[in-house]
Nucleic acid binder design. Structure first.
Lengths: 190, 190
DNA sequence: CCCGTTTGCCTAAACCCTTTAGGAAACTGC
DNA sequence: GCAGTTTCCTAAAGGGTTTAGGCAAACGGG
C-alpha cells in the first residue's frame, strides 16, 4: 500500500481546516483519518492523543493571529492601531471560526507561556503606546481591550447581534470610537 | 426494583451540578445515569438526547443569572447598578463555572428567543437608564457592556490574568470605573 | 381490592470515537 | 540488495449515544 505521507504538521493543518468546516469540537482523530483515507490508529504515531491534536490546532491559530496582528500594527499608532488590531481579531474569527474557537481552547500554563498568545498580549500592549497610560492602568487597559475584542467577537459569532438593529457593523465602529475615547480620557482612581 | 424517581427537572438540576463539578463538556448522559444509579437508556424517556440535556442546563443557567441580576439591580442606578450587574456575572461564573459555560452554549434562534437571555439583555439595558444615552448609542453601549463582562469573565476563568500583577481584582474595579466614566462621556459620532 | 393501563426503568444491540499492542510493508542508506 | 527504521495496518478493549422492545411497579376505576 502506498503511504499517505502523514506528518504531524500536515495533520494539524488539516485539522484546522476541518475545524473551520465543521466546528472545533467536531474535530476528531477519526474524522481526520477519514480525510486522509487512512486508518485511525495510524494517526497515533504522529499525535499523542485527541487532546494533543486540539492543542496543536490551538497553537497554530494563535500563531496565525499573532502574525496577522503584527502585520496590521506595523506602522500604525493610536486609533489606527486600535482599529487595525481589533479588525484582525474579528476578521480572523469570521474567516476561520473553528480556528478562532481553537485559539481560546484552554492551555496548561507551560504551553500557554510558550505559545504565540504572549506575542498577542505584547501586541495589545503595543497599541497603548499611542496613548498616555502609566502602569498599572496600562495593564488594566490591556485587559479591558482583550475582554472587549474577545467578548464582542464571541457574542457576534454566537449570533447575539444578528437579528436586531442597529447592525453589528455599526456597533463595532462605534465601540472602537468609544474605546479610543476612553483610552484618551482614562479616569483617575476615584 | 424500586423506582429512582427521575424527572426531566431533577436530571437537569443534577446535570448542572455535574457541570460545576467536572466541567460542562464532561456532562454526559452516561455520567448522569451513574449519578442516579440507573441505566443509561432510562434517561432517554426524560431527555430527547445528549444535546437536549445540555440545552436545558443552559436554559437553567440563564434563568438563574437573570434572577440574580434582577435582584441585584433592584433599587440601584448609575454606577451602583453597573457594578452590581457586573459582579453578578462574575460571581456566578466563579461559583458555578460549569453552569456559566452552559449559559454561553449556542442556542438556536427560537430557543434563545424564549430563554432568560432576553431578560438579561433587558436588564443590561436597564443599567443605562442611569446614564444619558439615546438610541442607537444605547444599543451600542449594551453590546459593549455585554462584551466586556462576558469577555473578562471568560479570560479570567481561563486563567488569563492569574499569574501577573496587578491582580485581577484590581483590574476589575478599575475597568468598572472606566466603563462608568465612558458611559458618562460617551463620544459623539466623529 | 383487584385489574387494566400507564409509566418508569431495564436488557439488548448497533454505531461511533479513543487508545494501545503488535505486525507487515515500504522506504533509507550503506 | 540488505538491515534498520519508519509508516501504516489489523485487532481489540473501553466508553458514550441512541433506539427497540419488554417487564414490573404505580395508579385509578369499578
Amino acid at each position: 500500500m502506498a503511504r499517505a505521507g502523514l506528518t504531524t504538521d500536515r495533520l494539524v493543518r488539516a485539522g484546522a481546516e476541518l475545524a473551520d468546516e465543521v466546528g472545533f469540537d467536531q474535530v476528531t482523530v477519526s474524522a481526520l483519518a477519514r480525510r486522509f483515507d487512512v486508518k485511525v490508529a495510524s494517526l497515533y504515531s504522529h499525535l499523542r492523543n485527541s487532546q494533543d491534536l486540539k492543542t496543536r490546532i490551538a497553537l497554530l491559530a494563535l500563531e496565525e493571529m499573532a502574525d496577522r496582528a503584527a502585520g496590521a500594527l506595523a506602522g500604525r499608532s493610536g486609533k489606527d492601531a486600535l482599529a487595525a488590531f481589533a479588525n484582525v481579531c474579528r476578521d480572523y474569527a469570521r474567516a476561520h471560526p473553528g480556528r478562532y474557537t481553537a485559539a481560546r481552547h484552554p492551555l496548561d500554563d507551560a504551553t500557554a507561556a510558550g505559545s504565540a498568545g504572549v506575542r498577542i498580549a505584547q501586541l495589545t500592549r503595543a497599541i497603548l503606546r499611542g496613548y498616555d497610560l502609566a502602569e498599572p492602568d496600562q495593564t488594566h487597559a490591556v485587559r479591558l481591550l482583550g475582554s472587549v475584542f474577545h467578548g464582542y467577537v464571541d457574542l457576534e459569532t454566537a449570533g447575539g447581534f444578528a437579528h436586531s438593529a442597529p447592525d453589528s457593523e455599526e456597533s463595532w465602529d462605534r465601540i472602537l470610537d468609544a474605546l479610543d475615547s476612553l483610552l484618551r480620557n482614562w479616569p483617575a482612581r476615584p
